[in-house]
């Protein structure tokens, strides 16, 4: 096997993502905005409101089954009020990466939306204060895959093929080619865009939830949501096998059988609604 690509190179490639010609203009614009260390909710709201396509996408997302307000949010200012800076920032990133996700890996968006929904439901069941923030973490947890696929298309394709041939997860096969995985790639991107450490942790550690210091519960939730969505077989995240649930995270989240059945059935309704829309 060829030499593994070292982490430092990957990091710089991740951070230069907006220089890529294949990255859509909206994402470049948004990324320039998010790179500013301080941005107010008001500013962010204005950027969205001034862009009709973005407004439509954001409103569609917040009114979808993944978030808790079906059909009730009719304006960007209402959305920003209800959801707050981190969620709006995350959604903005989510909807602008959507196109890339579908182009680079068909099914990744469906997987991500389902994870967003499962994360929110679990966060609500656990009584967390900001279930929508956890939902955004679920939405963005695999954003690193999109970036690796863009910057290292050939190698990532090969890693996916190996995952398929050997019946292993993409996370395992990634680490044979890269010194950093999609989890770290996502971490670097979110750090560059000034997401708070509590959100960054969930992305960075969604495969090793016990390592999270800033948000162990939220990270455990995203980990569990990811495995539940794979168990149900919704969308495609780069492989065809369910990874093992981390037992410490599983115990921490401690869902009853009824909880799990309810989540699976909500995921089904969400997937059904998405299918009927297209």
């Amino acid at each position: 096997m060829a030499d593994k690509i070292d982490a430092k190179t990957i990091r710089s490639k991740v951070e230069q993502i907006n220089t890529l010609p294949t990255v859509p203009g909206t994402l470049k614009r948004i990324s320039r905005t998010l790179e500013k260390p301080r941005i107010s909710l008001d500013e962010l709201g204005k950027i969205i409101s001034n862009d009709p396509a973005l407004t439509t996408k954001i409103l569609k997302m917040v009114n979808s089954a993944s978030y808790g307000f079906p059909g009730r949010i009719s304006s960007v200012s209402h959305a920003t009020m209800l959801l707050g800076l981190n969620v709006i920032k995350g959604l903005l990133l989510g909807v602008s990466v959507f196109e890339l996700m579908e182009k680079t890996m068909t099914g990744l968006w469906e997987h991500s939306m389902a994870c967003a929904m499962a994360s929110r439901i679990i966060a609500q069941k656990k009584g967390l204060k900001e279930p929508e923030e956890v939902s955004v973490c679920g939405l963005l947890h695999d954003i690193g895959k999109t970036i690796l696929m863009l910057q290292y298309s050939e190698i990532f394709q090969k890693a996916m093929q190996e995952a398929e041939n050997n019946g292993i997860t993409i996370y395992e096969s990634e680490s044979r080619h890269f010194s950093a995985t999609h989890a770290e790639a996502g971490q670097w991107l979110l750090q560059k865009w000034h997401f708070p450490p509590t959100l960054v942790d969930t992305i960075q550690y969604h495969h090793q939830p016990t390592l999270s210091k800033n948000s162990p519960m939220e990270t455990a939730i995203v980990h569990v949501a990811d495995v539940l969505v794979r168990a149900k077989g919704l969308g495609f995240a780069g492989d065809h096998v369910v990874p093992e649930l981390n037992s410490a995270a599983w115990d921490m989240v401690s869902l009853s059988e009824d909880d799990i059945m309810e989540i699976l059935s909500d995921l089904e309704d969400g997937a059904q609604a998405a299918r009927e829309e297209t």
């Binding site: 065809h240 093992e244 699976l264």
Partner: peptide
């Protein structure tokens, strides 16, 4: 759908908590 489910779980089916999850998804 049930065949796909078994295939997805093939690496982890020996672990008790994963087997339990597999059964719930099967019922679902």
């Amino acid at each position: 759908a049930l065949r796909d489910l078994e295939a997805r779980f093939r690496n982890v089916i020996d672990m008790p908590h994963m087997r339990a999850l597999n059964n719930l998804v099967k019922n679902h």
